[in-house]
Design a protein around this nucleic acid. Structure first.
Lengths: 346, 346
DNA sequence: GTGAAAGCGCTAACAC
DNA sequence: GTGTTAGCGCTTTCAC
């Protein structure tokens, strides 16, 4: 590929320096308001800089300073209420602290996730914020990152290792309480479209489900616990499986909001009315939940809070090198009462 | 801030070179499979590189090559169906072409948008993809960017200047056809919650609306055309304004999907039933539209197609420097028939 | 107050 | 095949 041809020759410190018969050092200092430089020179330098449309070269600056002023973020998806909201919060907080964000999407693919983390490392980001893909099992890269000393915070989809700071909803408690709510409403035949148990949210939500069931002595059907992904299509397919088994539960607890919607789709196709014939609850909401029919009773995740805490813990470690404080934050979800799961206890 | 303290000392070409008693040049070539280097040396180099956990320094590489292999993207928001979907597509296409994406969010703020564009310039991105904020009026920065020769493509929220490539929905035609549809359904009292007329989508959608109304000789009420933003809250407030004027239209044409939902909220609060008492249509949908009550009849935007075309045109210019081909792509939307706007013509 | 020298980690051109 | 030299644009240290 031809070099330096599509790229405009942006002006440099030297360009400014030459115009003023000084050196680039003087210019560099002047532009950064270094006390060394006289007011007069500063004025002149800044004027010429403006005339030339000078923009400092971030790349050169980063190389010289050995810090980039950027935070790397890896999430499974962005076209998704939880992540787009969290990411927006992360961007805002980072900007307030004068950090830039480099966002990468794993698309729920472990290999791509690893690639992106590598790229972020090579970009010499000052910190790393990760929410793991649904496929991620091999944690060696993550551990290498951690060992290298790069400040890292995991959020939402995490690993339960003592060496990582994590910020999550209290998934187990959330699942427990919504199931208990369903039981209080009189439901007994409860199915769970679970996430993969190698993911933190899958495991914890399922565990909360099981604990609530056991506490209230409700029998659990193995065929009513189906592991899968976190997307709409996963809910759709899992429901179809249950449907074809001819043994429908009264209510399905979906591991995520999109999975719940997938159930809606499938049920509609099979002419099963929600919540009359079959009820649905889940963990996580969406900003459109109030417009959905029926509105889903769910555990609302404090999405912005999660994003805010994650970036705040990260920046704390980035800006105070050497401290490496590890924090495990669990933020409780809140039960949102929608149109589903309204039956009275008998 | 203390330097080089929070940052792990990542290994460099020199580290590998020293271990093998060669120079970094040899190592650099070996790692890139340069034909100069013998197979044996390559093997050795790669082994040591692996042992040391070597990651090439993207920053240094970019500086040396004078190209970063990145595309800068600026959008108003990310927690929004249109943008999160478009951005996801952009990321995928970029990755397929071995480009990284640097995403920035203007949060609908012109000043922040300018800042981000500056930052992207300083990062020496190889190309720029922009969807303008609702506030953007001053185009001087944009023109400077263009003049500098950096390949730039605008999408969705664009400016109609011959020097920019643009990719949009055919907004005017979309508005025209959905209004015509409403008219065919028998609606006459039609209001428009319009976007700001200094934005392309605001102006064009309004123009489509007006053309359809004029073609069918339907009178337009000035108080039924309200300019505003593109978000839910804008729809909410605009509806309240109309409501308080005590002069309700039969149907409201909302400039965006979120604005339509804002109307839903406000109408619900005022006990006005949709679509019975008041009907709503809009431009743009959401992946959750089929679950909304009532499902909104709208012009579905080919979001992924817009993203795909935008990045494709950009990369074409990035990878073929000097050609600077300017393209104006308008992709037609598709009328989606939902539960709203179903009245039969009288 | 200003500048010369050195270096960040990498790549390209050209010797050897 | 491998190494030498130079340079990308910037900042820091230390003379002057």
């Amino acid at each position: 590929m031809a070099l330096n041809q599509n790229k405009p020759a942006q002006s440099t410190l030297d360009d400014i320096a030459r115009k003023l018969n000084v050196t680039k050092v003087t210019v560099s200092k002047a532009l950064r308001d270094h006390p060394d430089i006289s007011l007069e020179t500063k004025e002149k330098v800044k004027t010429v800089a403006r005339e030339l449309g000078y923009t400092p070269n971030f790349i050169a600056r980063s190389l010289s300073l050995r810090r980039s002023g950027t935070i790397g973020v890896v999430v499974p998806k962005i076209a998704h209420h939880f992540f787009s909201t969290a990411v927006e919060t992360i961007y805002d907080s980072a900007l307030q602290n004068s950090y830039e964000v480099i966002l990468m999407l794993s698309q729920e693919n472990a290999q791509r996730e690893a690639l992106h983390i590598q790229t972020l490392l090579s970009m010499r980001v000052d910190g790393l914020l990760i929410s793991l893909s649904k496929e991620t099992k091999d944690l060696s890269l993550l551990e290498a990152v951690k060992k290298s000393g790069l400040p890292t915070v995991l959020f939402d989809r995490v690993v339960e290792k003592p060496e990582f700071s994590t910020v999550t909803t209290d998934d187990e408690e959330g699942a427990f309480s919504i199931i208990e709510h369903a039981i209080h409403c009189g439901y007994r035949k409860i199915a769970h479209l679970a996430g993969y148990s190698h993911t933190s949210i899958g495991r914890l939500r399922r565990s909360g489900f099981e604990k609530a069931m056991m506490k209230h002595d409700i029998p659990m059907h193995p065929e009513w616990i189906i592991e899968g992904g976190f997307a709409e299509e996963d809910g759709y397919h899992a429901f179809m499986n249950i449907y074809h088994s001819k043994n429908l539960p009264e209510i399905i607890f979906a591991v995520t909001y999109p999975v719940a919607l997938g159930i809606f789709s499938a049920a509609r196709e099979k002419k099963i009315a929600i919540p009359e014939d079959l009820d649905v609850i889940c963990i996580g909401g969406s900003n459109y939940n109030k417009y959905i029919c029926p509105t889903i009773t769910c555990i609302d995740q404090p999405v912005q809070e999660i994003g805010k805490q994650a970036i705040s813990i990260l920046l704390d470690n980035v800006m105070n090198p050497g401290q490496n404080r590890i924090q495990k934050i669990k933020i409780p979800g809140r039960l949102f009462l929608g149109d589903t799961c309204r039956k009275k206890s008998a």
